[in-house]
Amino acid sequence: MENPTAASKTKKPASNPATKMAIEHADDSPSAPAPDKARLAIEARAFSFWYGSTQALDSIDLKVPERRVTALIGPSGCGKSTFLRSINRMNDLIPKIRHEGDILLENDSVYRADRDVVQLRKSVGMVFQKSNPFPKSIYQNVAYGPRVNGLVKGKREMDALVESSLRQAALWDEVKDRLDSSALGLSGGQQQRLCIARALAVSPEVILMDEPASALDPIATQKIEELIYELKNDYTILIVTHNMQQAARVSDYTAFFFMGRLIEVGRTEELFTNPVEEQTEAYITGRFG
């Protein structure tokens, strides 16, 4: 059974294709929806979700292991984004929603009545499909979260946090000389990595990524994928993607959603090479969706 740190050494991505490694090296334990020895980071229990009278999720049961990358795939409108946004309760912003069942984060209900949503969102970072840097400087984009949340004291500590966050997001070398210039002057890929740095700066336990590379060119996409590969040493990552090659490249586990239901979940290489469900096979071979 792999141990994250050791694995990272052997799997360190070379500069080129970030790629394949997830498949080639993902360990060869028997496939099972129940994950490896990693602790559970997130667990959905019979979670259903409605927008008004439209049911978007139907009784989802999903276990997400800690410090692994889990990909959510499925055709548009299958509920994967809704599920992702249910974890940090971003859907609360939408009127007339309703849910049943529960989602546990670190064994603690996300939906319990006295849950502090602001606190919850601090521990769950989120990266969006469209990069959304704040209209502030590069430095301020990273520093704003920790400052508002009172995570650091003093300028020196903040400088260090900004630098380490940008380094973790593999952006530091590109922006270190222009931290004070506007974040909106960065390229799309850089903006997206800045958004990742911004999420990392508030020390989340889990990072949710909603099609983080769908608007990026192949080179920027590759950088994001390399980054995801690095980040799983320290964070649990859930990524929604329409790109099945991407899911195959970056994830350890893959969950296939269809029409609001979780059809199949398993080790990525198992799910892609030997899917159990017919619908899964149809989707990954491109027969629909």
Binding site: M126, F128, R198
Partner: peptide
């Protein structure tokens, strides 16, 4: 202002007024 920008703030754990 794009909804994504608002969500970016909310996702960092900011309150609505912030």
């Amino acid at each position: 202002v794009p909804r994504e920008l608002r969500e970016g703030g909310v996702a960092l754990g900011f309150t609505r007024w912030r």
